[in-house]
């Protein structure tokens, strides 16, 4: 959590889209930006890139104000996937409240996915976050492409982890909002159990989700 000011009734949460290079993390954010209504969110801010590759991060902010006046700001980040930007990944991961791991479905990318996942596990430990307790959703992206690993294979490989696994094509625009909904739900539950969002501040999960996930007309 970035910030929680009880007097000001203001909470700032952080979600991070993690994953190997070119798995489509920025595309996820662009799709959310396009599909979700402008009402209740800011613009997508993309920091410097080289040859269209993220080198720092992208940021998409969301806002929710509960009937009680409690304000929740949600900052959604991507990390650079390239191995050499590990320091940046670590910095972005600090104080994250939830993580989406965007994996590349291409058959040749499986080992890269595992490497990146290992890297996530290692970096979470380095920034003092618990891998077991942190809300984490796995998205297998690029399902629209040929030469991808079959869904049942993915499910049997990742099933034992107990993590929610969602199939998506960020480019085609499907699976993205579902992924976001899942990580939001888990994150809300986690924060709620720690800070009593519903009980103490009257923030209802379904309203919160519905408000943030309002699709553009």
């Amino acid at each position: 959590m970035i910030e929680f000011d009880e007097q000001q009734q203001r909470m700032v949460l952080k979600l991070v889209y993690y994953g190997p290079a070119l798995s489509g993390k920025t595309t996820n954010l662009l799709t959310l930006h396009d599909q979700l209504t402008l009402d209740g969110r800011g613009d997508l801010m993309m920091l410097d890139t080289t040859e269209d590759r993220t080198i720092y991060f992208d940021l998409l902010p969301f806002f929710y104000v509960a009937p009680s006046g409690m304000k929740i700001k949600l900052k959604v980040y991507t990390v650079p996937g390239q191995v050499r930007h590990d320091a940046t990944r670590k910095a972005v991961l600090q104080r994250a409240d939830g993580v989406v791991f965007v994996a590349d479905s291409h058959a040749a990318q499986m080992s890269v996915n595992f490497e990146s996942f290992d890297n996530l596990e290692k970096n979470l430990a380095l920034v003092g976050l618990s891998f077991e307790q942190l809300p984490l959703v796995v998205q297998f992206n690029k399902r629209d492409l040929p030469d991808i690993v079959a869904e049942n294979e993915i499910r049997s490989a990742w099933g034992p982890t107990g993590l929610p696994v969602i199939m998506a094509s960020a480019l085609k625009g499907w699976g993205v909002v579902e992924t976001f909904r899942e990580v939001l739900r888990l994150t809300f539950d986690a924060v709620n159990s720690r800070h009593g969002l519903t009980e103490r501040y009257g923030v209802e999960r379904e309203f919160f989700l519905a408000e943030i996930l309002k699709v553009q007309q």
Partner: peptide, 14 residues
């Protein structure tokens, strides 16, 4: 280097 004031930035800080 331990005397150097280390500036720590939290990504996302308001």
């Amino acid at each position: 280097n331990s005397d150097n004031p280390q500036v720590t930035f939290i990504v996302g800080e308001e």
